[in-house]
Design a protein around this nucleic acid. Structure first.
Length: 113
RNA sequence: AAAGGAAGUUAUGGUCAUUUAAAAAAGCGUAUUCAAAAAAGUAUAGACAAAUAAUAGAAUUUAGAAAGUGGGGGGAGGAAAGUCCGAACACCAUAAAGCGGUAGUGGGUAACGCCCACCCUUUUGCUGGUAACGGUAAAAGAGGACCAGUUCCACAGAGACUAUACAAGUCAGUGCUGCGCACUGCAAAUUCAAAAUUCAAAACAUUAAAUUCCAAAUAAAUUAUUUGUGAUUUGUGAUUUUGGACUUAUAAUUUUCAGCGCGUAGCGCUGGCCAAAUGUGAAAAGUGUUAAGGUGUGCUGUGCUGAAUACGGGAUAUCCCUUCAGCGUAACGCUUCUUAACUCGGCUCCUGGUGACAGGAUGUCGUGGUAAACUCUACCUGGUGCAAUGCUAAAUUUGGUAAGCAGCAUGAGCUGUUUGGCAACAAACAGUCAAGAUAGAUGAUCAUCAUCCAUCACUUUUAGAAAAAGUGAGGGAAUACAAAAUUCGGCUUAUCAGUUUGCUUGGACA
RNA sequence: CGGGGUGUGGCGCAGUUGGCUAGCGCGCGUCGUUUGGGACGAUGAGGUCGUGGGUUCGAGUCCCACCACCCCGA
């Protein structure tokens, strides 16, 4: 779990990012990011009902992704709000696959230091 | 197949996180809070709008304390799921009706569409009976009312429920049409038919005349007379036929049309009788079953009578077997009627039960199905849902949008014992406190152990195999179904291994 | 948390209210037509009406439960 200060919680903020943010599409994820005026980066992971009907699978995906972000926090640039939307292709993937794919996506969208 | 249960949630260790309550050691450290000093009673009027009064009152800096971090404790389910039903709680509304829901009886419950017990029905097994049906066990059942009204019941069938209908048959009356017969009328065509008179021709008749053949008789002798018969001619005619003329009634006949009557056929209409069986269909005018008798009928056998001689066979050769038809008869089957016995159900009465209902008695009766069709009856039912709602909110009051906090974990609670009850369940006593997130916690990842799965090898049991158990090897799974979203009670659905019960199959022993 | 809808041949849809033949268009196969193709004509195949129960003589249709998909509100 991320520290509370690094979570993107408010509905207002998320809508703002979705509307004005930049997008990056990878095979497994869809990234949305926007610069904020704070010294921290804030994250959220979205797993739609359409990915799977089973809450167990959705929750597991979300936890794994959050863990990946938490472990890689030092590499990521600060001062951004980032939304990670999960596609249904990532359902059967292992932890390693997810980590590699997300790192690649962050690199391509120039969010890594 | 079912039941109940949830077995790694405290298995161990490494790395790294999140939420929460109480208490607090070192170290770290100042985003937050507290009080102190300065800033300063200065700026400002403090997320928004309005009003009031003249109050309220920072940021920032310094050094502290609390708190934080650190360390330690707790942290998903039997279904948390589906969201089908019932409640708690909150606000709004509050007269009835309507909409909607439920449906055997009694009990349980805060309540329920849930649970328990019982009743009834159905199905299946066993069993008694010739059978209808009865008894018993298990399973299943949305199980009020079709004597309030309405709907629907395909195809088939006379008819699917008022048997005044429909169809067929039959009788009577009657309409139309066709045909036949008779009559009447109109029109057209044909004939002038018929009668009277008259003329002509032909036929016929002639007891008119003449001539003549033949025969007979008489007289004479080769002819005459007479008679008869036939022929011819002429004449005649109350005759017939044909043709012509004229007169009368203007007629008759035929055809068409129209009218009327009778008969007959067809198609209708009205009324009466019949309205049954077979058959149809899931169901047939209504409780069924059995027995006896009667009726009808089917099939088979058989006797008699008649017919046939195509095929086949025989022979004593216009026949027999055979085939067909009719009549009789016997057995069997089916239908219906009558009688008897039994059976099911309703009504009435009696007995038992809180009740659904059950048992019995006597007599009597025998109303199609469909309400998971509308409907009727009885009972229940106001609406919206925790994103309800309340509170805080930089002077005060009012408003209440963003935000935050509460609602929110002591409850129709859980565990155990005893008592009451067939049970569901209830009461008493004792013990106990066990998740609380909100872009959403209760975990991510790596390794080990336990556990499970199948395969192979070995060992034990055995005569041997199979099966079972154990050991080992390498491999797989890392647990199934599935994650609180205000909270409870149910229902429904999902679910690996193991356990229990039932059923099935195989083996061994008796 | 709550409300609504859909599921019928390969595709798109009727039939469901009101129970008794499962149909239409496109597509597909075969044959004809054409030098060949298209178009056209003829002909044929293809369905357990999402799944499982129930009511009924009879269920795509009525009732119950479940599955999948879609939409809406706070």
């Amino acid at each position: 779990m991320l520290p509370a200060s690094k979570r993107l919680t408010k509905d207002k903020d998320i809508k703002r990012v979705n509307k004005a943010g930049q997008s990056y599409f990878s095979p497994l994820f869809k990234l949305k990011y926007l610069a904020n005026d704070k010294s921290l980066s804030r994250f959220t992971v979205v797993v739609s009902n359409k990915v799977s009907k089973k809450a167990v699978l959705r929750n597991r995906l979300r936890r794994q992704l959050r863990e990946i972000i938490r472990l890689n926090l030092k590499k990521i640039k600060s001062g951004h709000d980032i939304i990670v939307s999960v596609k249904s292709q990532s359902l059967g993937k292992t932890y390693q696959d997810l980590e590699n794919s997300l790192n690649l996506a962050l690199k391509k969208s120039k969010l890594l230091k």
